[in-house]
Design a protein around this nucleic acid. Structure first.
Length: 197
DNA sequence: GGTCCGATGTAA
DNA sequence: TACATCGGACCA
């Protein structure tokens, strides 16, 4: 049984929330069943100063609107054919968010295999933001929801099983100095950490 | 290891 | 009309 984490957990600066999410559970309850995974990789996006953030320069559109909302909100975003999951951080009005990039399955492994395809090796099920969303059955329908309420929520986990590491973020280009900011956090050596591109 | 390209939301 | 917080297929 998993219980949603305290709402206050999300009320902190994005550069603190991103590493704090490592080792916590991400849980999704659907009619097909429950799937849960331990988060091992996150990235911080620090709008409006961060050129790599969708909310750079306070860009406020239908898509980024929820980044300006209260912390703990779910920001889902469509990338090509994939859905990516973010956690809104900071305080209301500051467009900060944490991208969840990788997690280790702890429950509902078969359900994840069903959703992803049975031919994949286990780490390939959830070692990337798009893969993780698909394995958990998360879609744009979760946009604007709360990370501390069912059916999609963060639950207190066992913490890190290895050393905390930081490095440059993945998949951002043409963003000046932001390319080098060490705002990607992950558990060293864990096979569910995504591959650097 | 590398390269190519899908198929969709968003904004210019 | 262009491009993105990516993944998969295919080639080597």
């Amino acid at each position: 049984m998993y219980n949603p984490i305290d709402p206050g957990f999300f009320s902190r600066p994005v550069l603190e929330l991103a590493p704090a999410l490592l080792g916590q559970y991400i849980v999704h309850e659907t009619p097909e069943g429950l799937a849960a995974a331990r988060i091992v990789e996150t990235e911080a996006y620090h709008g409006p100063e961060d050129r790599a953030a969708h909310s750079f320069n306070n860009r406020r559109t239908k898509r980024t609107e929820v980044m300006f909302a209260d912390p703990g909100r779910i920001y889902t975003y469509q990338m090509h054919t994939h859905t990516l999951m973010n956690v809104v951080a900071g305080e209301e009005g500051t467009p900060h968010a944490v991208l969840i990039r990788g997690a280790e399955p702890v429950e509902g492994l078969e359900l994840m295999q069903e959703r992803r395809g049975w031919h994949f090796k286990i780490p390939e099920l959830t070692n990337g933001p798009g893969k993780l969303s698909k394995a958990l059955g998360v879609t744009m329908a979760s946009y604007g929801g709360l990370w501390y309420e069912e059916p999609l929520f963060i639950a207190p986990g066992p913490g890190l099983g290895g050393e905390l590491k930081a490095g440059p973020r993945v998949g951002i280009q043409n963003t000046g100095d932001a390319v080098h900011y060490p705002w990607r956090f992950f558990e060293e050596g864990n096979p569910f950490v995504s591959k650097y591109r």
